[in-house]
Design a protein around this nucleic acid. Structure first.
Lengths: 123, 123
DNA sequence: CGGCATCCTATTAGATACTG
DNA sequence: CAGTATCTAATAGGATGCCG
């Protein structure tokens, strides 16, 4: 439906990060190191299996995470950040800093900003 | 539906940027300077009146854009980036750089990564 | 355990029309 | 011109259940 005027080179990245939960996942992988599916799921409370798989697949396609499958029974699958994933961490941190600054300026005080598709909200 | 474990300080920022069209709007305002509603609308092709107003209101609430209304007839309303808005521009640029780098590494080759709520796609 | 496939609903955002 | 209001279509994503 909508268009994409070629402008905005960072859109592709944003589109990547934008996905629901995406940052949480990256954050956890970056912070806690490589994790197995189940652990990851528990580390991102509220996410559904479907979502988690979908996001991981997407991040994989983007070369942001790797996936290692142990063909044991039961199977054990581990995910981790690729170097490229760490690039992103940088951006996230940059945002984190600004967020921090804004917070002390009292930006996020009231109700949420009513962004858009943001599954990371109120309980 | 979902939760928000307090982690991920940058989530608030992302939630802000995540909204559809949001980056485009900021980008235009940052690139073209303050603009009137109509011009803005034409600068972000495909966006609906409703969306544009909604996004602008949201960005206003976040203190990212200012709004100046001239009570003439017909009315003339102008929007521009606040200093805080320029902070964001920095983040966007950072992302842009990475995007650029990745692009030369051929990340975004195939179909889109199927992010999430991203109205800024094909067409 | 990891993760598809299915189903089903809540939300979202486009189109349209009308007002100050 | 700059919105608001309404109505609707599309879809994202949660829940569930089964399979390797």
């Amino acid at each position: 439906m909508p268009r994409t005027p070629p402008q905005c080179p960072m859109d592709s990245i944003l589109r990547l990060l934008m996905g629901p939960w995406t940052t949480h996942i990256i954050w956890v992988l970056s912070d806690q190191g490589p994790q197995r599916f189940g652990v990851l799921k528990r580390a991102v409370p509220g996410i559904s299996t479907r979502m988690l798989t979908e996001r991981l697949r997407m991040l994989q396609r983007a070369g942001v995470v790797w996936r290692e499958q142990a063909e044991t029974i039961p199977p054990a699958v581990t995910y981790g950040l690729t170097p490229r994933g760490n690039d992103l961490r940088g951006v996230l941190d940059a945002m984190g800093e600004i967020a921090e600054r804004w917070k002390t300026e009292g930006v996020f005080e009231g109700d949420d900003l009513g962004g858009a598709a943001s599954p990371n909200s109120r309980l």
